[in-house]
């Protein structure tokens, strides 16, 4: 599901600087697709993107689109400013999300629809949404109804 949210013009939150290893990931996000490195040798999915497979050291990857569904592995709530660019974003939830496709395959994102008072717990199902910020698109997550 693609659910675009956009930042305001004076958003001072930092943005990723794609490089030759990571560009496919951000390009995928811009197209509304969550892409992972998939090792062509051992078949493992990998995040963050790296120079080789951390399991078998193969340097040959494909880019596999994953479902964007996962669960909260852990989460923290930032209520006090740690960075000038995030002052207007407070409070925000930062989560470690484990994707459904592979045990231990995790990424860091914000839970966009979690407002103060939202009941959160580890294990809750989440799904990817996309946030546009300063010319780049960031995969983010939101809670999904258990009855999806």
């Amino acid at each position: 599901m693609t659910h675009l949210t956009s930042s305001t013009a004076d958003d001072r939150r930092p943005v990723p600087q794609p490089d030759e290893i990571t560009r496919f990931y951000w390009d995928g996000a811009a197209a509304g697709r969550l892409l992972m490195q998939k090792c062509l040798s051992c078949g493992k999915l990998q995040f963050p993107p790296d120079v080789c497979c951390l399991s078998c050291q193969s340097e040959h990857f494909g880019h596999a689109e994953v479902s964007g569904r996962g669960s909260i592995y852990s989460y923290a709530v930032v209520e006090r400013p740690l960075h000038a660019g995030f002052v207007d974003a407070l409070p925000y939830v930062i989560a470690l999300v484990e994707l459904d496709e592979q045990s231990g395959l995790r990424l860091v994102a914000n839970l966009l629809d979690a407002t103060p008072g939202t009941r959160l717990s580890c294990g809750q199902p989440v799904e990817v949404v996309y946030e546009k910020r300063e010319g780049i698109t960031l995969p983010q997550f939101r809670l999904v109804e258990v009855s999806r």
Binding site: P14, V15, P16, Q17, D19, H83, G85, L138
Partner: peptide
């Protein structure tokens, strides 16, 4: 802290998310 406005390396998957 403040800045930088863009984040490279492995932190590109962390810092933009706060």
């Amino acid at each position: 802290v403040d800045g930088p406005s863009t984040v490279a390396g492995r932190n590109q998957f962390l810092t933009p998310y706060g």
